[in-house]
Design a protein around this nucleic acid. Sequence first.
DNA 1: GTCTATATACGGATAGAC
DNA 2: GTCTATCCGTATATAGAC
Lengths: 222, 222
Amino acid sequence: MSRPKKIADDCRSVSCPSKRDCILSAAQEIFLEMGYGAASMDAVAARANVSKATIYAHFDNKRALFDQVIRGRCRRFFQGGDILAQVDAASDARSALRQFASDLLSIILSPGALAINRVVVAEAPRLPEVGETYYAAGPVPAQARVTAMFNDLTRRGLLAVPENEAPLVAELFLNMLKGDLHTRALLGVAPSRDDHAPLVRIAVELILARYGARPSAVSGGP
Amino acid sequence: MSRPKKIADDCRSVSCPSKRDCILSAAQEIFLEMGYGAASMDAVAARANVSKATIYAHFDNKRALFDQVIRGRCRRFFQGGDILAQVDAASDARSALRQFASDLLSIILSPGALAINRVVVAEAPRLPEVGETYYAAGPVPAQARVTAMFNDLTRRGLLAVPENEAPLVAELFLNMLKGDLHTRALLGVAPSRDDHAPLVRIAVELILARYGARPSAVSGGP
DNA sequence: GTCTATATACGGATAGAC
DNA sequence: GTCTATCCGTATATAGAC
């Protein structure tokens, strides 16, 4: 009975530097899996092994907590430079585009990305700034990255995308990849096919058919 | 003082055949503008000029009411054959695709379609059947319609899409159109450009570059 | 079937001791 | 800063009269 005071000092796990981070981590889990409306501060407190009062000592109210959670996730997305890593080393346009497409799909369709997407879309009408933040941290850098890639491939003579068209083409390329797969994943509808190779292949061929530098062997490639 | 009984017999408006329909109509408005979580049965009752008890006489609980509302909207989408009306009369592939694209965008980006999309996506994890119903009533028929259009244009010699590739190409075409515009609209981010003409134009040219029947004048067209 | 009135609980937020 | 205990509004759902 020497130390009856400090009982629940650990936040259920490692990697909880401060109580504040511990709360943010728990809140993120709760919000992403239950949605903003269904999530309760009690649930967050329980998961964080903290009392509700402690939460309110760090955050003004539920909405502010939610805001910080989303902003935190967005920052991590943005900082994660590993996302959409370099494909510049690739030899030809076809393989560069394909590799890029695969990487992008695996990111966009990951459970974490889907969860945050759902929550942000759901609350965007009530929290416009959250929508803006998310858009600026996800789609905007992705599109910039693809635009740069098109310009680079064109500069190297592997593609022929006019520089003023590049942003629009980048948008269309991203759209082609994301589209229906993303919709299905968001809605919880079982995907029609488990691998995305055919879709990626034809999307790439559509780009090459119009913007390929050479007459471009239109066949599927390796 | 002859008829002091029947006071609130009208549901605030015309076109309320039964009380049930009146409740459904009010619930639709509330759910779509507030989201499932934030919507209250009191609000629905008030908007429908009905008591809460009456609602519970017609629907088991809030979730069941929501389910019926979504299913109703989906049915209307599906029946609305006017959606994506015929473009078969168009003379050439380019104008057919463009007209189709414009029609589709105006539907997908309409406030009503966006609102239902938001709530369905938000609640899909908790209500899987709603997600399925929505997907079957929206994206599936749209894609089938585009596939049919591609096959038709090919049959008429205006396009050269292999029949087994048509569904995938239809998906890619829809994806190109929907993509970022839809994302922005869902998130409440101001659209980058107010008209969609450039995006539609290039999307169509991408299709024509690979699947155009003739060598296809690649320039922008009229 | 429809209403008024109410049971019951839960959630956001706070008071006050330590 | 953190806890326990609580206030108070609101929300779902129901009881019972008509």
